[in-house]
Computed example of a mutant assay.
Amino acid sequence: MSANSLFLVSLVVDSYDRAKAFYCDSLGFDCLEDTAMPDGKRWLVVRPRGGEGASILLAQASDEAQRAAIGNQTGGRVGFFLRTDDFARDHRRFTEAGVLFQEEPRHEPYGTVVVFQDLYGNLWDLIEPAKA
């Protein structure tokens, strides 16, 4: 029997280098691959450090329709969820790196959470799941 899993999500960005710097330097993601393609594009894949879940393909916009989607790929809703095993550590690290938070951290039945935005305004949840 075969198993399927979501392993890659595309995120439209304005610049490969700007996006790579934000995700790798500010959020601490690992760059798994950064390969030049023949058409001038790059295969640029990042993933949360030590993570085993889906990775993100940072895709530089190539036309006006794609540029219009930058920062609003989920219509203003939280579209990305970053799980942490130490909320206080990562919240502090993100704050020190200048990441913009939309609210103060809060405690929900499912865990400790705060909404932040990426370089482009896409909304993310930083979540430490509640202990079972």
Rank of each mutant, 00 (worst) to 15 (best):
R89G: 11
V78A: 13
R77A: 15
R89N: 13
D90R: 05
E64D: 15
F81M: 05
Q60E: 15
F81G: 00
G76V: 09
T84G: 08
T84A: 08
H91A: 07
G79Y: 04
F81L: 03
H91F: 12
A61L: 04
Q66A: 08
R77W: 11
D63C: 01
D85R: 05
R83A: 10
A61Y: 02
R93E: 14
A88Y: 03
A88V: 07
S62H: 14
H91M: 06
G71A: 09
F80H: 13
S62A: 14
T74D: 04
N72H: 12
R67A: 04
R67T: 02
G79H: 08
F80E: 02
A68F: 05
R93H: 12
D86M: 01
T84N: 08
R83T: 10
D85Q: 09
Q60M: 15
L82Q: 11
F94R: 00
S62R: 15
F94A: 04
S62Q: 15
A88K: 07
I70V: 15
G76D: 11
A68Q: 13
N72L: 05
G75N: 09
A61Q: 05
R89F: 12
F94L: 13
A88S: 11
F87H: 03
L82A: 06
N72D: 13
G71D: 09
G75Q: 09
E64H: 05
Q66H: 08
S62P: 00
T74N: 10
G76R: 00
T84P: 02
R93I: 10
A59S: 14
R77S: 14
A88E: 14
F80V: 13
G75H: 04
R67G: 02
